[in-house]
C-alpha cells in the first residue's frame, strides 16, 4: 500500500473525525470572534439590550481619543516587556542551574516549576498578604534586616504597583521559560562543549559561544509567545491591583473589561478587543516567520 493511498483512503472516516472540531470551533471560536467584531460597531448597554443601535466607527473613535486607552496601551507594553525580560533572564539562569546530573535534582526541579500550576487567584491572594504594607511579612523582613527604613507601599504607588504585578507575573511564568529551555538544553550535543573545553574556553565563554546559539531558536519562539500572552493578560493584573492605584496598572484587557462592565459600554470593550486582535495578528505573522513553521509541511 502506498503512502498516498493510505492518506486518501477512507475519506469519510477522516471527515467524521474532524467534524466535531469543525462544529465546536465554529460555534465557540469563530462565532464569538465574529460577534465581537460586530459588537464593536454597535452601542450596546447590557442592561438595555432593547436599545442596541448601530454606531459606525464611533467606538473606535472613542477609544483612540481616550487618553486612558493610550496609557493602558503604554503601561501594558511596559508591563509586558519588563516581565518578558526578567522571565527570560531568570528562566535561562534557572534552566542552566537545573541542567546537571546531581543527587536530588528532581526535587529542585519540581519545586522550581511549581509556581506555574498555582492558580492566579491564589497567587494574587498570597501577594496581597505578604506584600501588605503594615502586616505583610516582606516589609517586616526588609525592615528588620535594615534594607529599608520605612515600610514600602507595594500596591499604593504607581511605580511599586507596577513592580508588584511584574513580580507576580515573573514568579508565575518563569517556569514556562525554564521548561522550554531545559527541553532544548537536553538535546545540545555534549561534543560541542568538549570541543570548546579543548579550545580552552571558560565557563562564561562556553555559554556565549556554545549554549546561547543553541538556545537562540527556542528563546525566540518562547519570547514571541510569551509577549503575546502577557500583553493579553487580564487576571494577573485585575486580581492584584484592579488596575490601580488610579489607572496606573491598566492594560488593554483591563481597559476592555472596565469599559464593558463598569461603564456598561460593551461596544467600546469589543472595539478594544478588536484592536488587540489586530495587534495579535501582526505578532502571529512575526512568530510564524521567525519560527519558520510551514517548512516541514513542504517535506511531507
Amino acid at each position: 500500500m502506498s503512502r498516498f493511498s493510505f492518506l486518501s483512503s477512507d475519506r469519510a472516516v477522516g471527515l467524521l473525525f474532524i467534524a466535531p472540531f469543525v462544529v465546536t470551533a465554529l460555534v465557540f471560536m469563530v462565532y464569538p470572534i465574529a460577534e465581537a467584531i460586530r459588537m464593536a460597531f454597535f452601542n450596546y448597554n447590557p442592561l438595555r439590550p432593547d436599545l442596541v443601535s448601530y454606531a459606525g466607527m464611533s467606538n473606535f473613535e472613542f477609544i483612540f481619543s481616550d487618553p486612558l486607552f493610550w496609557s493602558s496601551f503604554g503601561q501594558g507594553t511596559v508591563w509586558t516587556l519588563l516581565s518578558i525580560l526578567f522571565q527570560t533572564v531568570f528562566g535561562v539562569g534557572i534552566a542552566l542551574l537545573l541542567h546537571r546530573k546531581l543527587f536530588g535534582m528532581a526535587i529542585f526541579r519540581g519545586m522550581l516549576l511549581f509556581p506555574y500550576i498555582v492558580p492566579t487567584v491564589v497567587i494574587a491572594l498570597i501577594w496581597r498578604w505578604i506584600f501588605n504594607p503594615e502586616i505583610g511579612v516582606v516589609n517586616y523582613g526588609l525592615l528588620s534586616v535594615g534594607l529599608i527604613g520605612e515600610p514600602i507601599y507595594w500596591l499604593s504607588t504607581p511605580t511599586m504597583a507596577m513592580a508588584s504585578t511584574i513580580m507576580l507575573n515573573v514568579w508565575k511564568y518563569t517556569p514556562f521559560v525554564v521548561i522550554c529551555v531545559l527541553a532544548r538544553l537536553q538535546s545540545v550535543p555534549l561534543e560541542l562543549y568538549d570541543a570548546a573545553k579543548v579550545d580552552g574556553a571558560g565557563a562564561f565563554r562556553r555559554f556565549l559561544d556554545v549554549t546561547l546559539p543553541q538556545l537562540r531558536e527556542v528563546l525566540i519562539v518562547v519570547i514571541v509567545f510569551r509577549t503575546i500572552w502577557t500583553f493579553n493578560k487580564f487576571e494577573e493584573i485585575y486580581l492584584l491591583t484592579k488596575g490601580g492605584p488610579g489607572t496606573s496598572t491598566f492594560n488593554l484587557a483591563v481597559y476592555s473589561f472596565e469599559q464593558s462592565m463598569a461603564s456598561l459600554r460593551l461596544g467600546v470593550g469589543a472595539a478594544t478587543g478588536v484592536v488587540m486582535m489586530i495587534m495579535l495578528m501582526i505578532g502571529s505573522v512575526v512568530y510564524l516567520r521567525v519560527a519558520g513553521f510551514g517548512n516541514e509541511e513542504k517535506e511531507a
Partner: peptide
C-alpha cells in the same frame, strides 16, 4: 496613612480599628 491612595472600605476600617 501613606497607603490611603489605594484604600477602599476595608482598609479605612482597618486603619481605624488597628490604631493607625
Amino acid at each position: 496613612p501613606k497607603g490611603a491612595v489605594e484604600y477602599s472600605f476595608l482598609q479605612v476600617v482597618d486603619a481605624h480599628v488597628t490604631g493607625q
